[in-house]
Design a protein around this nucleic acid. Structure first.
Lengths: 309, 309
DNA sequence: TCCTTCATGCAGTTTTTCTATATGATTGGC
DNA sequence: GCCAATCATATAGAAAAACTGCATGAAGGA
């Protein structure tokens, strides 16, 4: 990359534009400057190159043999640069990249994406489903949604929703439940990967996980959810996981009580980058959707099969 | 090529250099400016792009995921530009392109090229052997050598040598020649393409081509020359054509008289471009070689088999 | 012939870029 | 644990570059 030091880049660009468009005036139009400016640029740059690229014959410019080959290469180079910048811009404005946990994505976010598309025409979403928190400064993502106590360093955090857990089960099973203690006699579907403990909910009623029956165990919350829907047991679920099965009636929520886990849903963005409009729009949309989810839970609680104690 | 208007090219170049070299200081070294200047450039350009390319974490810079892809494309684009400029420069300094008539090239110039190479190490010659005069402004050639009255418009002309014609023949045939009139009784080798006429030489002695015998005719001077060497007749030759056969004795020059043709050898260059050093050097070398050729002809004339009238 | 289009020359102004220096922050050696 | 080196950034003034607007000259078309 040593040769470019001798040459003014803007001069090369002027050369290229004139070569491609034929006249100074058209090149000036593309470059957004006056024709005189372009004239000065190409003269200076030809001098720096040491050989003429254009022939002046009174009126207009024609390209020398050398210029023909040279300009072709310039065009190729500048086109590459232009495409790089264009894709950066396009990407910047119309593509929103979100990093979310796979379960949250599949059970809650993905089913709502068509609503997002309708509300934000032209925007394209890219979902990056990973478990680990990525650094929003380094990585490609615009926003991340993560569950936790909210103690990540060097990022900007917005709390979206407090995570709460509660039992869910298939309707057939719910018929055998009248009060919390009934849960102890039923099979349980465990999500062995989760750090959430039954005790946080059972404790509300003075019960303990130790007294529960055994049951099936799954390494993935989605599998455990399917097992619960199949009627294989009671499951400890949380809002975004159980939302759709509850809405369709595939699962029911025997009790209206929900227990705080100490975790919340956080929207994670870069602490150094200024918030872009597309991010702000997504944030607002997400808040509205979560608020609706929360309202639906209020309704579900009122219809809970078993009245509160 | 519209996106590049929003971005400063030099800023992109700074971005690319920093991405490739890792630190501001190294990039500044390559770009030939101070580190502070590079810092300002990349900050400004990142703002223009609308997204950061580098992450600042106290000391040093690391590249974002986006930057990784973006910088790769920038590097490709700038490399293309750099190579275009580099080849232009290289070409400009070390390659000399000469347009010459094929006969002149093969009979006089090419045998001397090794002398040129020894005198100008590092220089590479490109011979463009065409009959028509090419426009030195438009075409790729640095210099052209042409024979004619010197009336070409819009070019710079340097006279190299006046063209002169004279009879040549094989030594066996020369034994039958004592005076110019003897030529009328000998077979003649004609170059039917040439505009040169025997009368210009015969006229010096009050003779005329009408009185000559017929003979073989060739559409190419080189073929006619070979026929003359083979002893098939007398030929009207000129300096640069007959030089080597005369020097080796394959042909002889029966008379020392040479007739002007009105044509000269001209060195043709662009009338608008400033003369480059490599062209000036070639011109000097060519003059010296032609001067030597002319001296050799003086010696040949002194040894001419037939004394002047 | 007149009018339009084209490239270039020029002077002054505006914009950009650069240097030089200072600052804060981090790393690595001792 | 401290010191020196390295690194990026900030700032202000200086230097360089690019641009505008207009004038000029040359060529082609109606």
């Amino acid at each position: 990359m040593k040769e470019l030091n001798r040459i003014h880049l803007n001069g090369l660009r002027a050369l290229e534009a004139v070569g491609r468009l034929g006249t100074l005036a058209r090149a000036a139009g593309e470059l957004g400057v006056s024709a005189g400016a372009v004239s000065q640029q190409i003269i200076k740059t030809e001098a720096q190159l040491g050989r003429p690229v254009f022939v002046r014959k009174g009126r207009g410019l024609t390209v020398t043999d050398f210029g023909e080959r040279f300009l072709a290469r310039l065009t190729a180079g500048f086109r590459t640069l232009d495409e790089a910048v264009a894709s950066a811009q396009r990407h910047a404005d119309t593509v929103l990249t979100i990093s979310v946990a796979p379960v949250f994505a599949s059970k809650w976010l993905v089913p709502r994406l068509d609503r997002y598309s309708r509300a934000n025409p032209g925007m394209r979403l890219r979902l990056d489903a990973t478990v680990d928190l990525v650094d929003p400064d380094v990585s490609d993502i615009d926003v991340a949604i993560r569950v936790g106590p909210g103690e990540w360093p060097n990022v900007k955090l917005d709390k979206l929703l407090d995570q709460e857990v509660f039992p869910v089960c298939a309707p057939e099973l719910a018929a055998r439940i009248a009060e919390p203690a009934d849960l102890l006699g039923l099979p349980v579907v465990f999500d062995s990967n989760s750090v959430l403990k039954w005790d946080s909910w059972l404790g509300l009623f003075g019960l303990s996980e130790k007294d529960m029956q055994g049951g099936s165990s799954f390494t993935d919350a989605a599998l455990a959810l399917d097992a619960a829907i199949a009627g294989q047991g009671v499951m400890l679920a949380w809002q975004t996981l159980a939302y759709y099965p509850l809405k369709t009636g595939a699962l029911v929520m025997p009790f209206r009580e929900r227990a705080r886990t100490g975790n919340s849903y956080w929207l994670v963005t870069s602490s150094t980058r200024r918030e872009e409009p597309k991010v702000a729009r997504f944030k607002n949309w997400l808040r509205a959707e979560l608020a609706e989810t929360e309202r639906d839970f209020e309704l579900l609680a009122q219809n809970a099969a078993v009245p509160r104690l």
